[in-house]
Protein backbone atom coordinates (compact mmCIF):
# COMPACT_ATOMS: atom_id res chain seq x y z
CA UNK A 1 0.00 0.00 0.00
CA UNK A 2 2.62 2.54 1.09
CA UNK A 3 6.35 2.21 0.65
CA UNK A 4 8.56 4.97 1.97
CA UNK A 5 12.26 4.74 1.17
CA UNK A 6 15.00 6.92 2.61
CA UNK A 7 12.70 9.93 2.86
CA UNK A 8 14.38 13.23 3.66
CA UNK A 9 12.23 16.31 4.20
CA UNK A 10 13.23 19.89 4.89
CA UNK A 11 11.11 22.72 6.22
CA UNK A 12 12.45 26.24 5.70
CA UNK A 13 15.78 24.74 4.71
CA UNK A 14 16.04 22.78 7.95
CA UNK A 15 16.27 18.98 7.69
CA UNK A 16 13.47 17.41 9.73
CA UNK A 17 13.13 13.88 8.35
CA UNK A 18 16.46 12.20 7.80
CA UNK A 19 15.92 8.95 6.00
CA UNK A 20 12.57 7.34 6.84
CA UNK A 21 11.85 3.80 5.67
CA UNK A 22 8.39 2.43 6.10
CA UNK A 23 6.41 -0.32 4.47
CA UNK A 24 2.68 -0.52 5.18
CA UNK A 25 0.60 -3.30 3.70
CA UNK A 26 -3.11 -3.26 3.04
CA UNK A 27 -5.06 -4.30 6.11
CA UNK A 28 -2.35 -3.13 8.51
CA UNK A 29 -2.35 -0.50 11.20
CA UNK A 30 1.00 1.12 11.87
CA UNK A 31 1.64 3.50 14.72
CA UNK A 32 4.36 6.10 14.81
CA UNK A 33 5.29 7.30 18.24
CA UNK A 34 7.79 9.88 19.20
CA UNK A 35 8.49 12.89 21.36
CA UNK A 36 7.60 16.44 20.36
CA UNK A 37 9.76 17.76 17.55
CA UNK A 38 10.76 14.33 16.30
CA UNK A 39 9.19 14.93 12.87
CA UNK A 40 5.87 13.11 13.25
CA UNK A 41 3.69 15.89 11.83
CA UNK A 42 6.24 16.60 9.12
CA UNK A 43 5.84 13.05 7.91
CA UNK A 44 2.06 13.45 7.89
CA UNK A 45 2.21 16.74 5.95
CA UNK A 46 4.77 15.39 3.50
CA UNK A 47 2.48 12.45 2.76
CA UNK A 48 -0.48 14.79 2.22
CA UNK A 49 1.53 17.10 -0.04
CA UNK A 50 1.65 20.29 1.94
CA UNK A 51 3.58 23.15 0.39
CA UNK A 52 6.78 24.04 2.20
CA UNK A 53 7.58 20.44 3.09
CA UNK A 54 10.34 19.83 0.65
CA UNK A 55 11.39 16.30 -0.13
CA UNK A 56 15.13 16.45 -0.75
CA UNK A 57 15.75 12.74 -1.10
CA UNK A 58 13.96 9.41 -1.17
CA UNK A 59 10.70 8.14 -2.56
CA UNK A 60 7.15 7.36 -1.55
CA UNK A 61 5.20 4.81 -3.50
CA UNK A 62 1.47 4.56 -2.87
CA UNK A 63 -0.26 1.63 -4.57
CA UNK A 64 2.77 1.53 -6.83
CA UNK A 65 2.46 5.17 -7.88
CA UNK A 66 4.79 8.04 -7.09
CA UNK A 67 2.84 9.84 -4.37
CA UNK A 68 5.21 12.80 -4.21
CA UNK A 69 4.36 13.80 -7.77
CA UNK A 70 0.70 14.26 -6.97
CA UNK A 71 -1.10 17.47 -5.94
CA UNK A 72 -2.81 17.23 -2.53
CA UNK A 73 -6.27 16.87 -4.07
CA UNK A 74 -5.06 14.11 -6.34
CA UNK A 75 -3.67 12.21 -3.35
CA UNK A 76 -7.08 12.57 -1.71
CA UNK A 77 -8.76 11.37 -4.90
CA UNK A 78 -6.46 8.35 -4.93
CA UNK A 79 -7.58 7.53 -1.39
CA UNK A 80 -5.10 9.22 0.94
CA UNK A 81 -6.58 10.97 3.95
CA UNK A 82 -4.86 13.16 6.51
CA UNK A 83 -6.52 13.66 9.86
CA UNK A 84 -5.10 16.97 11.07
CA UNK A 85 -3.64 17.53 14.50
CA UNK A 86 -5.01 21.07 14.44
CA UNK A 87 -7.98 21.18 12.06
CA UNK A 88 -8.34 24.71 10.73
CA UNK A 89 -11.57 26.68 11.06
CA UNK A 90 -13.03 28.00 7.80
CA UNK A 91 -15.77 30.52 8.57
CA UNK A 92 -18.28 30.79 5.77
CA UNK A 93 -17.60 27.38 4.26
CA UNK A 94 -20.13 24.87 5.45
CA UNK A 95 -18.81 21.50 6.51
CA UNK A 96 -21.31 19.56 4.53
CA UNK A 97 -21.10 21.63 1.34
CA UNK A 98 -17.35 21.43 1.16
CA UNK A 99 -17.45 17.73 1.91
CA UNK A 100 -19.93 17.22 -0.88
CA UNK A 101 -17.57 19.04 -3.24
CA UNK A 102 -14.69 16.88 -2.01
CA UNK A 103 -16.57 13.60 -2.21
CA UNK A 104 -17.93 14.32 -5.66
CA UNK A 105 -14.49 15.36 -6.92
CA UNK A 106 -13.14 12.06 -5.61
CA UNK A 107 -16.02 10.11 -7.15
CA UNK A 108 -15.46 11.84 -10.46
CA UNK A 109 -11.80 10.84 -10.32
CA UNK A 110 -12.89 7.24 -9.82
CA UNK A 111 -15.27 7.49 -12.75
CA UNK A 112 -18.36 7.41 -10.52
CA UNK A 113 -21.42 9.63 -10.76
CA UNK A 114 -21.80 12.39 -8.19
CA UNK A 115 -24.03 11.59 -5.23
CA UNK A 116 -27.31 13.46 -5.36
CA UNK A 117 -28.40 15.62 -2.46
CA UNK A 118 -30.64 13.01 -0.90
CA UNK A 119 -28.15 10.16 -0.97
CA UNK A 120 -25.47 12.47 0.29
CA UNK A 121 -27.53 13.61 3.28
CA UNK A 122 -28.39 10.02 4.08
CA UNK A 123 -24.74 9.05 4.05
CA UNK A 124 -23.82 12.09 6.13
CA UNK A 125 -26.37 11.28 8.83
CA UNK A 126 -25.14 7.73 9.05
CA UNK A 127 -21.46 8.69 9.30
CA UNK A 128 -22.08 11.53 11.75
CA UNK A 129 -23.89 9.08 14.01
CA UNK A 130 -20.84 6.81 13.90
CA UNK A 131 -18.73 9.39 15.73
CA UNK A 132 -21.66 10.95 17.60
CA UNK A 133 -21.21 14.26 15.78
CA UNK A 134 -24.44 16.23 16.14
CA UNK A 135 -26.16 16.68 12.77
CA UNK A 136 -26.22 20.41 13.40
CA UNK A 137 -22.41 20.53 13.47
CA UNK A 138 -22.14 18.90 10.07
CA UNK A 139 -23.96 21.91 8.66
CA UNK A 140 -21.97 24.60 10.43
CA UNK A 141 -18.90 26.32 8.98
CA UNK A 142 -15.91 23.98 8.97
CA UNK A 143 -14.61 23.69 12.55
CA UNK A 144 -15.80 27.21 13.29
CA UNK A 145 -16.46 27.46 17.01
CA UNK A 146 -16.00 23.71 17.45
CA UNK A 147 -14.51 22.44 20.70
CA UNK A 148 -11.29 20.42 20.53
CA UNK A 149 -13.22 17.17 20.76
CA UNK A 150 -15.74 18.25 18.13
CA UNK A 151 -12.94 19.10 15.72
CA UNK A 152 -11.43 15.65 16.10
CA UNK A 153 -14.78 13.95 15.70
CA UNK A 154 -15.34 16.09 12.63
CA UNK A 155 -12.07 14.77 11.20
CA UNK A 156 -13.15 11.17 11.67
CA UNK A 157 -16.63 11.95 10.34
CA UNK A 158 -15.04 13.34 7.19
CA UNK A 159 -12.79 10.32 6.95
CA UNK A 160 -15.81 8.06 7.21
CA UNK A 161 -17.52 10.03 4.44
CA UNK A 162 -14.52 9.85 2.11
CA UNK A 163 -13.63 6.21 2.85
CA UNK A 164 -9.91 6.48 2.14
CA UNK A 165 -7.59 3.54 1.45
CA UNK A 166 -4.80 5.05 3.50
CA UNK A 167 -5.56 7.24 6.47
CA UNK A 168 -2.81 9.15 8.23
CA UNK A 169 -4.07 10.30 11.61
CA UNK A 170 -1.90 12.98 13.16
CA UNK A 171 -2.33 13.09 16.94
CA UNK A 172 -6.02 12.45 16.66
CA UNK A 173 -6.02 11.73 20.39
CA UNK A 174 -4.64 15.08 21.51
CA UNK A 175 -7.14 17.16 23.40
CA UNK A 176 -9.62 14.33 23.84
CA UNK A 177 -10.97 13.07 27.12
CA UNK A 178 -11.31 9.34 27.54
CA UNK A 179 -14.94 9.13 26.43
CA UNK A 180 -14.30 11.18 23.31
CA UNK A 181 -11.21 9.09 22.66
CA UNK A 182 -13.28 5.91 22.73
CA UNK A 183 -15.83 7.38 20.33
CA UNK A 184 -13.14 8.50 17.92
CA UNK A 185 -11.30 5.18 18.16
CA UNK A 186 -14.53 3.33 17.51
CA UNK A 187 -15.08 5.46 14.42
CA UNK A 188 -11.58 4.69 13.21
CA UNK A 189 -11.90 0.97 13.91
CA UNK A 190 -15.11 0.92 11.91
CA UNK A 191 -13.04 1.80 8.88
CA UNK A 192 -10.45 -0.90 9.27
CA UNK A 193 -10.56 -3.49 6.57
CA UNK A 194 -8.44 -5.76 4.40
CA UNK A 195 -8.18 -3.11 1.66
CA UNK A 196 -7.32 -0.27 3.96
CA UNK A 197 -4.30 0.82 5.90
CA UNK A 198 -3.87 3.21 8.78
CA UNK A 199 -0.90 5.22 9.93
CA UNK A 200 -1.59 6.45 13.43
CA UNK A 201 0.72 9.16 14.73
CA UNK A 202 0.67 9.73 18.44
CA UNK A 203 2.67 10.97 21.33
CA UNK A 204 0.96 8.73 23.87
CA UNK A 205 0.32 5.05 24.04
CA UNK A 206 -3.23 5.62 25.31
CA UNK A 207 -4.82 5.79 21.85
CA UNK A 208 -3.24 2.44 20.94
CA UNK A 209 -5.29 0.71 23.64
CA UNK A 210 -8.28 1.46 21.47
CA UNK A 211 -6.81 1.39 17.99
CA UNK A 212 -4.57 -1.64 18.30
CA UNK A 213 -1.63 -1.45 15.87
CA UNK A 214 0.07 -4.28 14.03
CA UNK A 215 3.38 -2.47 13.96
CA UNK A 216 4.79 0.29 16.14
CA UNK A 217 7.65 2.58 15.12
CA UNK A 218 9.54 5.01 17.26
CA UNK A 219 10.52 8.23 15.54
CA UNK A 220 13.25 10.29 17.12
CA UNK A 221 15.13 13.16 15.55
CA UNK A 222 13.80 12.44 12.08
CA UNK A 223 14.61 8.77 12.00
CA UNK A 224 12.82 5.58 12.91
CA UNK A 225 14.96 4.14 15.68
CA UNK A 226 12.86 1.17 16.74
CA UNK A 227 10.19 -0.98 15.19
CA UNK A 228 8.20 -3.59 17.05
CA UNK A 229 4.74 -4.87 17.85
CA UNK A 230 2.15 -3.30 20.12
CA UNK A 231 4.16 -4.19 23.20
CA UNK A 232 6.80 -1.70 22.14
CA UNK A 233 4.28 1.08 22.70
CA UNK A 234 3.55 -0.23 26.18
CA UNK A 235 7.24 -0.42 27.01
CA UNK A 236 7.72 3.08 25.73
CA UNK A 237 4.93 4.33 27.93
CA UNK A 238 6.63 2.83 30.96
CA UNK A 239 10.22 3.73 30.19
CA UNK A 240 9.80 6.98 28.31
CA UNK A 241 11.47 8.15 25.12
CA UNK A 242 14.74 8.96 26.88
CA UNK A 243 15.47 5.27 27.37
CA UNK A 244 15.14 4.63 23.66
CA UNK A 245 17.10 7.75 22.91
CA UNK A 246 19.91 6.63 25.19
CA UNK A 247 19.85 3.07 23.91
CA UNK A 248 20.17 4.23 20.33
CA UNK A 249 22.58 7.03 21.18
CA UNK A 250 20.58 9.71 19.45
Amino acid sequence: MLKIEDLHVEVDGKPILKGINLDIEAGQVHAIMGPNGSGKSTLAYALAGREGYEVTKGSVLYKGQDLLEMAPELRAAEGVFLGFQYPVAIPGVSNIYFLKAALNAIRKHRGEDPLDAIDFMKLSKQKAALVQLPDELTKRSVNDGFSGGEKKRNEIYQMAMLEPSLAVLDETDSGLDIDALKVVAQGVNGLRGPDRALLVITHYQRLLDYIVPDVVHVLINGQIVRTGDKDLAKRLEKEGYSEVRDATQL
Partner: peptide, 21 residues
Amino acid sequence: FYLRARGVPEDFALAMLTYAF
Protein backbone atom coordinates in the same frame (compact mmCIF):
# COMPACT_ATOMS: atom_id res chain seq x y z
CA PHE B 1 -4.53 23.15 2.08
CA TYR B 2 -7.23 21.71 4.32
CA LEU B 3 -9.79 21.81 1.52
CA ARG B 4 -7.35 20.39 -1.03
CA ALA B 5 -6.19 17.62 1.30
CA ARG B 6 -9.81 16.49 1.45
CA GLY B 7 -10.02 16.32 -2.32
CA VAL B 8 -11.35 19.69 -3.41
CA PRO B 9 -9.42 20.81 -6.53
CA GLU B 10 -7.29 23.88 -5.96
CA ASP B 11 -9.18 26.34 -8.15
CA PHE B 12 -12.50 25.24 -6.70
CA ALA B 13 -11.12 25.54 -3.16
CA LEU B 14 -9.91 29.05 -3.96
CA ALA B 15 -13.35 29.94 -5.27
CA MET B 16 -15.04 28.56 -2.16
CA LEU B 17 -12.82 30.62 0.12
CA THR B 18 -13.29 33.71 -2.03
CA TYR B 19 -17.05 33.33 -1.91
CA ALA B 20 -17.03 32.74 1.85
CA PHE B 21 -14.96 35.88 2.34
